[in-house]
């Protein structure tokens, strides 16, 4: 089984280098296959229903072997953006920056500026939650502070899709999906950042608009 997974992983990487991948895996030339490539974004109610969970996944299609040596890029900030006034402009951000084996989580806090450029928004280090980045093969390390929980490290890619068959359809070599389909992302990992925050910190009730960004230090 393990060998099969390895072979599968290599095959997938070969395919991935040729084609564009969903959900957002390898979506555009600048970020494709790099450390700032966001593969997926999730936002859902936590086990504690007073909380909301944000998940950002990066660096998709990691085989188990590649996962062991994968790392977050210390120059790349992962920023969750939250609009709770309905104008699709962020009112709050949660920033995650890796350094020396830890992921530093800042926020939710109003950004010092909105848009393409970001600076660190913590006013004091009391606002910063540092969680050790979980190494491959180790149990998940979780840090909780002020009601906010954080995790950073490799995880199974939660995305599933028969992307190979979708590509064949789009490429004109197939006319329909197969049944059963084949999960192109089976057996592959991503680098994940998971942050759970009290809903009261991001608006309390109603609907938010949210998205995730990767930003590189200049």
């Amino acid at each position: 089984m393990k060998n099969f997974k390895k072979i599968l992983g290599v095959g997938i990487l070969a395919v991935a280098s040729l084609i564009v991948i969903a959900a957002d895996h390898i979506d555009a030339p600048v970020v494709q296959g790099g450390t700032s490539d966001i593969t997926d974004f999730y936002a859902f109610q936590g086990e504690n229903t007073n909380n909301l969970v944000f998940v950002a996944n990066l660096q998709g299609l990691l085989s188990p072997t590649a996962t062991a040596s994968a790392a977050f890029d210390e120059d790349v900030m992962i920023e969750f953006n939250i609009d709770n006034t309905g104008d699709n402009i962020e009112d709050l951000v949660i920033q995650a920056v890796p350094r020396n084996g830890k992921m530093y989580i800042i926020g939710p806090v109003a950004p010092s500026q909105t848009g393409i450029n970001s600076t660190i928004t913590a006013e004091t280090s009391k606002d910063v939650l540092g969680v050790k980045i979980t190494s491959y093969g180790m149990d998940a390390m979780v840090e909780t502070k002020n009601g906010i929980s954080a995790f950073a490290g490799p995880r199974d890619d939660p995305f599933f899709m028969d992307f190979a068959q979708y590509s064949a359809i789009i490429g004109g070599t197939a006319t329909s999906f197969n049944n059963p389909g084949s999960d192109t992302f089976a057996g592959t990992n991503v680098m994940s950042v998971v942050v759970e925050v009290p809903k009261a910190m991001i608006g309390g009730s109603g609907t938010i608009n949210t998205w995730v960004e990767s930003k590189r230090k200049q």
């Binding site: 564009v20 991948i21 969903a22 959900a23 957002d24 895996h25 979506d27 555009a28 030339p29 600048v30 970020v31 700032s36 490539d37 966001i38 997926d40 974004f41 790349v76 900030m77 920023e79 920056v97 350094r99 020396n100 830890k102 530093y104 393409i116 450029n117 970001s118 600076t119 660190i120 995305f159 608009n209 949210t210 998205w211 995730v212 960004e213 990767s214 930003k215 590189r216 230090k217 200049q218």
Partner: peptide
């Protein structure tokens, strides 16, 4: 750690697969 600096956007995502499916190749970046 000193995390200061200006961080400039490279990738973003809201809903799944939107850029992949609906944006033409030369506009994805």
């Amino acid at each position: 750690p000193n995390l200061s600096g200006i961080y400039v956007q490279e990738d973003q995502m809201g809903r799944p697969a939107v850029n992949t499916v609906f944006v033409s190749s030369d506009s994805k970046d």
